[in-house]
Simulated scan of single mutants.
Amino acid sequence: MKKIICLFCLILAVKGYASDPLKAFYKYGELSDDEIHKLHEGDILYGDVEFGLIANNGNKKSTAFKLKSNVYQDFTQWRNQFKLDALYREDDVNDTGHNEVSASRYFVSSQGNYKVGQDNESFFLYADYLNDKFSGKDYTATVALGYGNRLFEGRKDTIDFDIGPGLYLSKTDSDTELAQGEARLKQGQLLRIALQWERNISKRTRFNHDVSMEVSLSGLNDRLISETAIVSQVLGGVSLKISYTYRYNSQPETDKVKADTELGATLVYSF
């Protein structure tokens, strides 16, 4: 819990490095992604942070934190993107005053895009790391490189894609029983495909749909992560985000389900 609060404070602190934080606020729906990147070109960091908190106190006590960030750097030849997605939950067990962790997931990723030719054309290098205490794995990590471009650009809509080969690495936790001869550490090749659809609904509201799929070329786990969200500006750099996230693993560990869903309502701070 303390780690999440410290991460949240650290990310808010970096806004002071922007060229002018007060002028750097942008309103969802008023600027396209390209206009936002152009506005912040040369800035060390810009982007958004979202935070959610649910605390129950009564017959049942529980505390849940949701922290997510999407931060960019945009230079002449490179555009870098850094993501953090963390969820933590504690429940009071049988009203004894002893708390039990019921959810603990940390996901970080980074992607560097080297711009070539047209503004939306690039070569990318991507890496991510997932630590989910209740997935049956100690960790999952992937790296990929490939090509990215824009599939469609209209008055209100843009659709971008990335595609390229990569490597997959995962380790099953020590509490999970393995079949005879099965390795705890698994690695193989994959194909990564990512799509991002953005639609401006109104002056202050936008619709986002991000989906990434990693198809194993070695007969291991296929992974899909999809987030559908509506973000509406509330005041200045603060917006309200309603999102639905779907996660799928084709080969989950024993006693684990393939699909995991999450419905959230969070505040987003843009800097």
Rank of each mutant, 00 (worst) to 15 (best):
K3L: 12
C6Y: 14
L7D: 13
F8L: 02
I11E: 07
L12V: 06
V14P: 01
Y17R: 08
A18N: 09
P21G: 13
L22M: 15
K23C: 03
F25S: 07
K27D: 02
Y28F: 11
Y28V: 05
L31N: 02
L31V: 01
S32Q: 00
S32F: 03
I36C: 00
G42N: 03
V49W: 11
L53N: 15
A55I: 04
K60D: 14
K60Y: 12
K61Y: 12
K66E: 08
N70G: 04
Q73G: 07
T76W: 09
F82P: 13
A86P: 01
Y88W: 07
D91C: 10
D95C: 10
T96S: 15
H98E: 11
V101T: 14
S102E: 15
S109T: 02
G112D: 02
E121K: 13
S122L: 14
F123Q: 05
A127G: 08
Y129M: 08
G136K: 03
K137W: 02
T140V: 14
G146A: 09
G148R: 04
R150K: 09
G154Q: 01
R155N: 11
K156W: 03
L167W: 12
L167T: 06
T176K: 10
E177P: 03
A179L: 15
E182Q: 14
L185K: 08
Q187Y: 10
Q196N: 14
W197I: 00
E198Y: 12
E198T: 10
R199E: 11
S202Q: 02
K203M: 06
R206P: 00
F207T: 08
H209S: 13
S212W: 06
V215R: 02
G219T: 04
D222V: 00
L224Y: 03
E227P: 13
Q233M: 07
K241T: 01
K241H: 00
I242F: 04
S243L: 06
Y244W: 06
Y244G: 01
T245P: 01
S250F: 04
T254F: 09
V257F: 15
K258Q: 07
A259F: 15
A265S: 09
T266W: 01
S270R: 15
